[in-house]
Amino acid sequence: MTKRDWVMKSTVAVILSTSLLMGGQVGQASAATTSYTQQTKEVATIAKSLLGKPYKYQASGPNQFGSANLATYVYKQVGVKIGSTLGSLYKAGTKVTKNSVKAGDLVFFSSNGSGSPTFMGIYIGNDQYVYSSQGDGKVVLKSFSDYSKKFVGARRILDESSSNSNSSNSSSKPATDIASQVIKHGEKYMGTPYKYGSSKDTTKTFDCSSFTQRVFKEVGITLPRDSRQQSTVGKTVSKKDLQVGDLIFMKASVNSSSDRITHVAIYAGNGKILHTYGSPGVTYSKFDGTNWEKRVVKIKRVI
Rank of each mutant, 00 (worst) to 15 (best):
A47H: 03
R214T: 14
M120E: 14
M22Y: 09
K150S: 03
V96D: 04
R301Y: 01
D159V: 11
L242Q: 06
G137V: 04
I266L: 15
G27E: 13
G83I: 11
T11W: 07
K149A: 14
A47G: 07
V43S: 12
A13I: 05
T118A: 08
S133R: 07
V244S: 02
R228Y: 08
H275W: 08
S17C: 10
S210M: 04
V130M: 11
S163G: 14
F65W: 04
D127Q: 00
V302F: 03
G121N: 04
Q229G: 13
V26M: 13
L50A: 12
D241Q: 08
Y73F: 13
T97D: 14
S100E: 15
D241W: 03
A268N: 10
W292P: 00
S165Q: 13
P193T: 11
V80Y: 13
R214I: 03
E293S: 09
T222P: 05
E160F: 05
V26Q: 09
P117D: 08
A268V: 07
P174D: 11
K53W: 09
F109S: 01
A32Q: 11
K149D: 14
G186T: 07
R260A: 14
I299W: 02
T202N: 07
V80G: 10
D105V: 02
I183V: 12
N69R: 13
S10E: 08
T290E: 03
I299C: 05
S209I: 02
Q230R: 08
I261V: 07
S114F: 05
D226A: 07
K286D: 14
T283D: 09
M250G: 13
T33V: 12
I15D: 03
S231H: 01
K56H: 12
S110Y: 00
M190T: 08
A92C: 04
K184H: 13
S161Q: 13
T118N: 13
G234V: 07
T37M: 15
S88N: 08
A92L: 08
Y147E: 15
R214H: 05
I46W: 15
S256I: 04
L274I: 03
Q128Y: 04
F287H: 04
V14H: 06
D241E: 10
G66H: 10
L242V: 01
L274D: 12
S10C: 11
G115I: 06
I273T: 12
G24W: 09
M250Q: 15
Q128I: 02
L158C: 10
Y189N: 08
I157G: 10
S285V: 10
G104T: 01
A44E: 12
S285K: 09
V101P: 00
V244F: 06
S110P: 00
T37F: 13
P54W: 13
A103D: 03
M250F: 09
I303R: 11
K3D: 02
G121E: 01
T222C: 03
N63S: 15
S163T: 14
D159G: 06
T176A: 14
S210Y: 02
S285E: 08
K300H: 02
K150M: 00
S170M: 06
A103I: 09
T34N: 15
C208Y: 01
V282T: 12
V215W: 02
Q39I: 03
L50Y: 12
